[in-house]
Amino acid sequence: MASNLTNIPQSMELVCPAGTPAALKAAVDAGAHSVYCGFRNETNARNFPGLNFSVKELRDGVRYAHQRGTNVLVAVNTFARAGDVGIWTKAVDDIAACGADAIIAADLAVLDYAHKNHPQVRLHLSVQAAAATPEAINFYAQTFGVQRVVLPRVMSVEEIEKLNKEISVETEVFVFGGLCVMTEGRCALSSYATGKSPNLTGVCSPPGDVSYDEEGDKLYARLGGFTIDGFEAGENAGYPTLCKGRFNANDETSYLFEDPVSLNAAALLPRLRAAGVTALKIEGRQRGKAYISQVVKAFRQAVDVLDAGGNAEAEVSAMLNAMTEGGRETTGAYKKIWR
């Protein structure tokens, strides 16, 4: 049986992104309780050029983190290809050999392999599994010994509280960063535009299919040749993710699915703690170490202040103001005032 994560004196664990070894060090040094990362291949859902870890880099990263009391969680959270599961099982073996603290997985085959071959390593259910019901989560817990589930960003705080009363595993929720408005693991929008998706190839709206074109005074962001958005001079730009595009429909131009805003649930930390949430996840493995350092410091301060009986919402929001997509933020589905 896998052990509990150690070195978490706070009431809630802060789980922080690390797209590179430098970002891992930045997150650890800024006060992350845990960092999460992935290998430089299609086994993880952030398979972007120049990002991620080699096996040696992971081994070194685990050593650096453990020496400073930080846990390392490694994502193998894409869905394995039928008849070609070799790189997924090798990734699981490598994680165990590197001494990482947990594997974050979504695919049944990967979960089964990890559970049978490395029962000493904790298993976390990735958000890519889109498990949001007690029935689904309890199945994963009973079948594969999953100890934590990362919840999709489509649930309200009330729903999370109710869920926590009906499951035996820990819950981890996203509190800051890019906001996936779909139920993760089940979105095929990127596939329609580019033939690639986070679920199978580890990339949503892959950068190789992205172009930014200046036309007159406007900047157009395109994905796979489709115009996703246009920005006036001086207007903040955004990444052309299909679900955050601005389109013409019924003679009106608007964001059809959701505005390109970042999630910031700093104001909801007390309610998330009361709802029984174990861990707070910061999105952004594709972001740089300057961003990582600032966001981790802000949220670590928020968690520390919360544990001391205070509320650091205003300070945290000021610290994070410049770090959000489109320069704007939302509490997402947690408050259900969201479109």
């Binding site: 200046e214 207007e235 730009a237 990444y239 770090m323 997509e325 320069g327």
Partner: peptide
Amino acid sequence: GTYDGDAMFFSRDLVIE
């Protein structure tokens, strides 16, 4: 590493082609 590339791009301080 003073600046985050994404933040600089979103704020239009940086242009990529």
